[in-house]
Design a protein around this nucleic acid. Structure first.
Lengths: 193, 193
DNA sequence: ACAGCCATGTAACTTGTTACATGATTTT
DNA sequence: AAAATCATGTAACAAGTTACATGGCTGT
């Protein structure tokens, strides 16, 4: 429940009501993670049910102020402390798609790879152009998000190239000329050909 | 609905009943993606509701054989053809956690980064040891999955180091000595220190 | 006869997501 | 007075996940 944990994080600074949580959430993520208000309320309700949060003030003007409970504080601490789980197993739609495409009659997994690759490279270009606009004292949250996307997308391109090479090694008739990637991190030019 | 699409993919080869779909799914993913049978039936039901699949035989021995409809075939084709969406936006729990940890009172984002990093490097080592056991004519699906994890995890380590550097640049009291990563892809040794 | 697997499904739940309903306050 | 915004929430749904119920067939 990463959104719930984020709400706890915001509440850790100070008690707050729903609307404020939404605004603060988007402020911290640099508006890169738009959050529907409704979701704040339902998530908050779940947190209250689980005893992580408690209403401290039911203002006459309608604002319902929530605060952390001890359990909530503890839960938040453990969220920060415990590394995010990856395995088991890696539920990645792209991997699944590629696995399914391989050995599928009437489907060229090379085509699938290329489509994915084109889209990844395109994204990478958008991202680097966004990064160029980034000011050195801009929002840290936004920078984290952008960077993460860049690294993940780069990794995807490499992975796709690896998969392609693996397929060719196994002997497939092919479509595309070779052009291996060994570009340094954060350099789109060599990746985009 | 990536599981649903996978079921369509399997059905594309031949009509099949639930149990067979489960087995084939796990066979193709090299058992790296265990699939509860119950989920097959509910997913299948959804697919039938959406007209992607149709029951073609209600065997007296209890097996219910399903087959693709034209819509299902078309949907599958488009799944393979259309690159998997990433943006907007990147809902990554780790990013969220780090964003929330930054500027959080009483929480050191450097600690969060280090915990995540340790866990990533550990995973990377497990993965490379798994890769070493891999035979050159082993299951392709499994190889794809493993590789994807390796690349993604590597990217994560880089990202974490980048975040740390960014935080230090902004001036934080620190804990860890520097040791930047510029290791070539698929080399765990330089990443693990 | 009974253990075990094959095969079917259902119910309940989690997290996330959108769309809508409602009332209060503020601005024009 | 009308429109906009603030603030609350509900309903419905998607996709995934687990646990359980049921019945048939098979081998010992």
């Amino acid at each position: 429940m990463s959104i719930g944990m984020s709400l706890l994080a915001i509440l850790h600074d100070a008690p707050a009501y729903g609307m404020h949580l939404k605004n603060e959430f988007e402020a911290r993520t640099g508006s890169m993670w738009p959050l529907n208000v409704g979701q704040v309320y339902s998530t908050l309700a779940r947190c209250e049910r689980d005893g992580l949060v408690r209403m401290v003030e039911d203002g006459p003007e309608g604002q319902k102020v929530y605060d952390l409970t001890d359990a909530g504080r503890e839960r938040l601490r453990s969220w920060f402390e415990t590394p995010t789980k990856t395995l088991p197993p890696a539920r990645d739609e792209r991997v699944l798609k590629l696995v399914m495409a391989t050995g599928q009659r009437g489907v060229s997994s090379l085509d699938v790879i290329q489509a994915e690759r084109r889209s990844a490279v395109e994204l990478l270009q958008e991202l680097t152009s966004l990064k160029r606009k980034e000011s050195p004292d801009g929002d840290v949250g936004w920078a984290f998000l952008l960077d993460s996307l860049v690294f993940q997308t780069e990794a995807r391109v490499r992975w796709l190239d690896d998969c392609e090479a693996r397929l060719r090694r196994r002997g497939d008739t092919s479509t595309r000329p070779d052009a291996p990637i060994t570009a340094p991190v954060h350099d789109t030019s060599e990746v985009s050909r």
